[in-house]
Design a protein around this nucleic acid. Structure first.
Lengths: 295, 295
DNA sequence: GATGTTGATAGGTATTATCTATACAAGCGC
DNA sequence: GCGCTTGTATAGATAATACCTATCAACATC
């Protein structure tokens, strides 16, 4: 296969019509350039130049190949130029995956500052359940996950972002809303509404509830957090709700949210990347932005 | 500057997502490929791959550069392919220059067989006076000249094609047409019609005439051989005419052409190329064709 | 925990691009 | 005609580097 250097020599001679001048232009000695071009001609099996003392002429083949050579060089220059632009880790695309019980409540709070922190990056957002997110991250379809950290995610590099408390959501007149203190143990004997299978929030919330002695309403399972919220609003029961999904909402006076006293149940929202992900600078920006906005 | 080999390595890994398999595909050892790609990454100042045991992933930069790399490789392949097609010396362009006192009479006889002998070449024909032809040949604007050879053309490589006699053209009733023998010396005392300056035929014909003791009609000078012919037809005098310009013509009975007895005046029609012209095979075809057709 | 897979590393070798010095050929000037 | 200049090719040495084999390190799998 030809070498780009040889094509540069070819183009230099095509331009200067003079070996010595072309060699100077290429910052090599004249014999070097001569020798390499002779080799190129041998490799191609044809003559590129008609050499004479007066002037170096391009043969017909030389003229045509000079055009092709320039095309190769242009492509190579384009390659290098693109590479140069890509060296800035804060330029390019960032594909971010989040879980459905987090995305709708977190994104409105971080997207504007994130775009400000990374003005030259194109941010792509994906909302999937945890297992799908982990697959996509492994396969490189995603660059970043933002989700509650679990121990089976140890294969990825983790940046803890914040702890999100799980709060009690219940009708306003419910006993648990109105008593002076609220701890997990108060859930004993209660029946909680839950999300359908696949949501990690379901597993986590149910973990806390079962540990506290509560049970699950098996008749209805919500397909989303908003469905779940409306089930509570319509008086079908109570549930645990991540705190971000409870702020800035007006649900009339039918339901109320209440924090547990210590020890609070919570999920640790973390940012995951593949351990050898290259654009760490952009990751740091994301981590810093989220921490600052949710602090 | 990047090397094409490295881009091949990049593309192989991008395809196989596996260093060892990519190395095998490129017919090099795995450490070689690994090492070269590390160097490439260092040269570019960015990471192209995320390496892990499970799978090699392209970084965002890697993906974008892989596209650019393919563009470079495609251009390089196109270059080599073009070179391959150009190795056939019987393909391409041939720019042929002829003089005005030869072209109109020679070309009709050789063009068809020439096109048959070189079916894949594009023949370009130019008609200029000798000095302009020689300049163009030197500068590479022309590849071949076909003209009467003169000693000042020794700088070029010469293939003698044929000797073209110069014949007497005179009114039918002219004494020289009708005498039993005709030699140059018979021109003594005659006044000949000539071409205008710049035509090599003028210089050659006048050379013969003056040596024989003839003189030149200085009142009229023809701008072309056809003008000259019509001057003779209209009875203005006599002239020397190259033989090719006398065949297949019906000029009524007003004028006649007559060969000289030995020693015949003639001009040697030769083919000239630059000494280091590369496509000699095509030249040989032209030489052979002309010789055969004019034999 | 042994084994296999995979990419990186180490050290040596072979290739080759490059250099300097010089030869060679062709014009130019005296 | 004889140096002198110009311009390219050749020769021989050197330096850069692409490449190899052998091995390591990390991880996965059984």
């Amino acid at each position: 296969m030809i070498k780009i250097r040889d094509l540069q020599y070819l183009q230099a001679v095509a331009h200067y019509k003079h070996f010595s001048q072309a060699a100077e232009f290429c910052h090599v000695s004249q014999p070097t350039l001569s020798g390499q071009l002779i080799k190129l001609e041998q490799h191609l099996g044809l003559q590129l130049f008609e050499r004479s003392r007066q002037a170096v002429l391009l043969t017909t083949a030389g003229k045509q190949l000079s055009v092709k050579a320039q095309a190769v060089l242009n492509a190579a220059i384009d390659f290098e130029q693109t590479a140069k632009e890509l060296t800035d880790p804060l330029i390019g695309e960032l594909h971010i995956g989040l879980i459905p019980t987090l995305a709708p409540y977190l994104l409105p709070r971080i997207m504007t500052p994130l775009k400000n922190a990374l003005p030259n990056m194109d941010l792509f957002l994906y909302e999937k359940q945890t297992h799908a997110l982990l697959d996509d991250l492994s396969q490189g379809k995603l660059d970043i996950l933002i989700l509650p950290w679990l121990e089976n995610m140890a294969q990825f590099e983790r940046y803890a972002l914040f702890d999100e408390p799980l709060v009690l959501m219940a009708p306003t007149n419910h006993r648990l809303i109105n008593q002076s203190t609220l701890v997990l143990a108060d859930l004993r004997g209660q029946e909680l509404l839950t999300l359908e299978d696949g949501h990690c929030l379901r597993d986590q919330a149910m973990g806390f509830c079962f540990a506290a002695g509560a049970s699950e309403n098996t008749q209805f399972r919500a397909t989303s957090l908003e469905t779940l919220r409306h089930m509570v609003i319509s008086g079908m029961g109570l549930t645990l709700m991540p705190e971000l999904a409870t702020t800035g909402l007006q649900n009339g006076n039918l339901v109320a949210y209440r924090q547990f006293d210590d020890p609070k149940p919570f999920r640790n929202i973390s940012l995951l990347i593949r351990p050898n992900f290259s654009r760490l600078a952009s990751i740091q920006k994301v981590v810093a932005t989220v921490k600052q906005e949710i602090a």
